[in-house]
Design a protein around this nucleic acid. Structure first.
Length: 851
RNA sequence: GCCCGGAUGGCGGAAUCGGCAGACGCACAGGACUUAAAAUCCUGUGAGGCGUAAACCUCGUGUGGGUUCAAGUCCCACUCCGGGCACCA
């Protein structure tokens, strides 16, 4: 029997050696160039790792080990994002404390991660639920809370530096003004309330929980918000400076949703009130035949005449019952009611009706629009339904007739029917008309150019136990005090019941001993904020904590931050595409606040982001417990070894692609690793006789150095599948050789080390070395070995391949042209034809064009 | 509906700048070794044609057009699949 690679023994052997030697500990050695390779840290669920996890982790591990062999000081840490609903719910059903469940799950995750041989520096492990960690999450919340955004300097500044308007003199007024400017603030807004979960959900979380069968309704509640909208422009602009997947940048851009247009004031008839609208098409104002305001608009009731009061009240009540999802369902027909009120179109001077409809969203712009049914799909649909007038003010550019009664014309064109005694847009292009109309509005003081963003402020509070407490207290008079730094962390109380309070408050509201207390600093009776932070909070800054994980005085010392993050931030950040918008956007926002205060040196946290693709089940469907098609990495590792799992996951296809699992494929990789093993070792793990201190043949040198080039380039590109294929080709070549030169084998072992670290270490040891292969330099390609004396070229007649020839690499153009003319096959196809042209691509082909 | 990807043998995929399509792996078939099997090694493997064979020829990268001496690669139109957004004025 041929000796198979004894992976079980080898893998556990090297894992304990690495641990013993602290091989993966990262020194803060600032003399070396640094490389920061980061994984999106996992949520430690009770299910443990599935085969999707190791995909991204293996990729960063390969890059980290490769960079280390290239002489970089590599930071490659791991931690756990452990606060959140799943654990809290698990705790309730299993009657175990979330901290206990977390500890258990973390231990299992760590076992599995170590089983796979990832070179994590566990001395830097972090866990978002540990007080020593969340102390700084709270600290950052307070930094945000104690800040306002200075539009002049475009950065966050301490709230103490906020200029107070002269007319405010009462301390209470001043405090209220400050509160209105803070980057963390309290708002009473309609939120997504889930009764069964007893908490609000972020808009983006709603679908996830609805899919699981929970119901979610809209309910106005008191919530903490973060003013991320102040950073909209910077979050948009700085996307240009990072190396991220195009789709992710596009998604973030769309999420931020910048629109340029104008705001304009419409005077209400018989009132001194007016309605402001935002429009991206000020050029169509002459075609605005009615206004629509959202049901929640503050003027809704005042506009409404007695005759319509009942209908409006009914409509508003109906709209309030609908969820955001129902309201934004495109399939349903538009609804609305007339208020009885009228406004003046400032362009035409006409009296136009004001309607209420829920297709206008309260939270965007002013919650009101000027409706131009001739040039907007939605307004057209609404106008048709309710018989409102349609007035065309734009013609297609090519002058074709367009029936706006039938179909709205929404493209750019040429303005018509757009003039009054003061202004005429007629004949102007849409771009010119927009500019001129906006100018006119500005001059009349009834409008201005305006940039509007779709991005909304971040709903930051959750009514649950298992999250960071918000470090704010309230006194009996309703006033509030934020904790000082020396009072952090505000610890979660240790309780045994995590059920919601039943009042819409978090379980913390029921913890009498914790929630009510005497404030030591003031001696006053106080009550803590009972909301906790959302799961996103801890992940907003964890990449910073890895740089200085045990610092009790700062979240990260400046010196270490400067070294590890540098000018560009994390060098490589790999994780799932499901975090393309929220996590990456929220983390960027926090980073920018820290940047404004000089706590970090880079404007962006992650220089390069990459998303690994989904690993599907062997049947091509998503892996899911309900399909019973989930592949467990423990089983694969037991059967084929961790190295085989690692290499297979990298060999399956491009890292970013979704691809199905294949058990046969793992076997193939297992065979490949065995072939590599047998190149070096005979039965019993002794050095093979075929391995000798011989010179490499020039063919072997060529193979070795072209493989080095390919593997090194491909690791930088994260094209691991082709790097592995290159190593397979090199392995096959060496297997076929009578004599295997030691130098060639050593190159192969070093090349494969980042991919299959256990195998490489063992082979390196069998080769007679007592040190780790990871202390070796990664092989360097000697390009002189890549030049060949002869090359094979293709001979074509009329662009079809008719023959091939081997020629000297430095052959002259003239001689190349002649080459084919002595080739039998080429002559056969040229027979009876006259050569009109010869195309020569040096080193590649000669093409005879003849007729 | 809009935005972003993608489509290549029986399967996963390769082809980095427009220059030999199908590297590498899987699967399959034949052979060697073996009493036999497993393991391993060797050979073959896009489709079709002609042939005893070697060789040779034709077709072929989702569909239809185009540019070019030359197209998987560039351009135009379309089909299907995946991801995201979705009344954002």
């Amino acid at each position: 029997m041929t000796m198979a690679y004894p992976f079980t023994a080898v893998e556990s052997k090297w894992q304990s050696i690495w641990k013993e030697r602290r091989s993966n500990a990262t020194p803060d050695d600032f003399s070396k160039p640094k490389f920061y390779a980061l994984d999106m840290f996992p949520y430690p669920s009770g299910d443990g790792l599935h085969v999707g996890h190791p995909e991204g982790y293996t990729a960063t591990d390969i890059v980290a080990r490769f960079k280390k062999m290239q002489g970089y000081n590599v930071l490659h840490p791991m931690g756990f994002d452990a606060f959140g609903l799943p654990t809290e719910r698990y705790s309730m059903t299993h009657n175990i404390h979330p901290a206990e469940a977390t500890a258990k799950n973390v231990a299992n995750f760590k076992r599995q991660l170590n089983m796979l041989g990832f070179a994590y520096d566990w001395e830097r492990e972090i866990n978002t639920t540990e007080p020593a960690y969340y102390k700084w999450t709270q600290w950052m919340f307070l930094l945000i809370y104690n800040s306002w955004y200075d539009d002049a300097t475009e950065k966050a500044r301490p709230i103490d530096e906020l200029p107070i308007p002269q007319h405010l003199s009462e301390p209470k007024e001043i405090e209220a003004y400050r509160d209105s400017q803070r980057l963390a603030f309290i708002s009473h807004i309609p939120v997504n309330w889930c009764e069964q979960l007893g908490t609000v959900l972020a808009n983006e979380e709603v679908d996830e929980w609805k899919e699981k069968g929970y119901t979610v309704e809209r309910r106005p509640m008191r919530q903490w918000m973060l003013r991320i909208t102040k950073y909209a422009e910077r979050l948009l602009k700085d996307l240009d400076s990072v190396q991220w997947p195009n789709s992710t940048k596009e998604m973030q851009k769309h999420w931020i949703g910048k629109s340029e247009g104008a705001e304009a004031k419409f005077q209400l008839l018989g009132s001194d009130e007016s309605i402001w609208v935002f429009t991206t098409r000020p050029d169509t104002m002459f075609g605005a035949t009615y206004l629509v305001i959202a049901p929640e608009h503050s003027l809704a009731d005042r506009i409404t005449t007695d005759e319509y009061r009942e209908a409006v009240a009914n409509y508003k009540a109906q709209a309030a019952l609908k969820s955001d999802l129902d309201r934004t369902d495109l399939a349903t027909e538009k609804t609305g009611v007339f208020t009885g009120g009228y406004a003046l179109n400032p362009a035409t001077g006409a009296k136009i009706p004001v309607w209420i409809a829920d297709y206008v969203l309260a939270h965007y712009g002013f919650g009101a629009i000027m409706a131009v049914p001739a040039h907007d799909e939605r307004d057209h649909e609404f106008a048709k339904r309710f018989g409102l007038p349609i007035s065309q003010t734009v013609l297609p550019e090519n002058g074709t007739v367009w029936d706006c009664e039938e179909t709205p014309f929404t493209d750019d064109g040429t303005s018509i029917n757009s003039s009054n005694s003061e202004i005429s847009l007629d004949g102007l292009s849409t771009a010119e008309a927009k500019r001129k109309m906006t100018e006119w509005l500005e001059n009349k003081g009834i409008g201005a150019r305006k940039i509007q963003y779709r991005l909304r402020d971040w709903l930051f509070s959750r009514q649950r136990y298992w999250g960071e407490p918000i470090p704010i207290m309230y006194y009996e008079d309703g006033s509030r005090r934020a904790l000082d730094s020396d009072e952090l962390p505000l610890l979660l109380p240790d309780v045994s019941d995590f059920k919601p309070a039943g009042t819409g408050e978090s379980p913390l509201a029921n913890v009498e001993k914790w929630v009510n207390f005497i404030d030591k600093k003031t001696g006053r009776r106080a009550r803590y904020e009972t909301n906790t932070m959302p799961q996103w909070a801890g992940s907003c800054w964890y990449y910073l904590r890895y740089c200085d994980p045990h610092n009790e005085n700062e979240f990260c010392t400046a010196e270490k931050e400067r070294y590890w993050l540098g000018k560009n931030g994390v060098d490589l950040y790999i994780g799932g595409a499901e975090h393309a918008v929220l996590h990456l956007l929220y983390a960027r926002f926090w980073h920018k606040v820290l940047f404004d205060y000089g706590y970090v040196t880079s404007a962006e946290p992650f220089a390069r982001v990459f998303h690994q693709g989904l690993i599907l089940a062997e049947d091509g469907r998503k892996m899911s417990k309900s399909f019973k098609n989930v592949v467990n990495p423990d089983e694969v590792t037991a059967k084929y070894g961790a190295d085989a799992l690692r290499v297979f996951e990298m060999f399956m296809g491009p890292l970013e692609a979704s691809k199905p699992w294949s058990t046969n494929g793992v076997e193939g990789i297992s065979r490949f690793l065995n072939r590599v093993w047998r190149l070096v070792a005979d039965e019993g793990g002794v050095l093979s006789d075929l391995l000798q201190n011989a010179e490499m043949t020039s063919e072997q040198e060529y193979a070795a150095h072209s493989t080095i080039k390919k593997v090194a380039e491909d690791i930088d590109l994260l094209s691991f599948n082709t790097a592995i294929s290159a190593m397979m080709i090199f392995t096959n070549e060496l297997t076929a050789a009578e004599i295997r030169p030691r130098a060639a084998i050593e190159i192969l072992v070093k090349l494969i080390a980042p991919f299959a670290p256990h195998l490489a270490e063992e082979l390196w040891s069998i080769l007679g070395n007592s040190t780790s292969v990871f202390e070796e330099k990664f092989p360097i390609c000697d390009v002189s070995k890549l030049t060949r004396k002869t090359v094979e070229i293709v001979l074509q007649v009329n662009s079809k391949i008719r023959s091939k020839a081997i020629v000297h690499a430095d052959i002259s153009r003239e001689d190349l042209e002649k080459t084919g003319l002595s080739d039998e096959s080429v002559l056969k196809f040229l027979d009876g034809l006259t050569v009109r042209k010869i195309i020569v691509v040096p080193g590649k082909l000669v093409n005879y064009i003849a007729n």
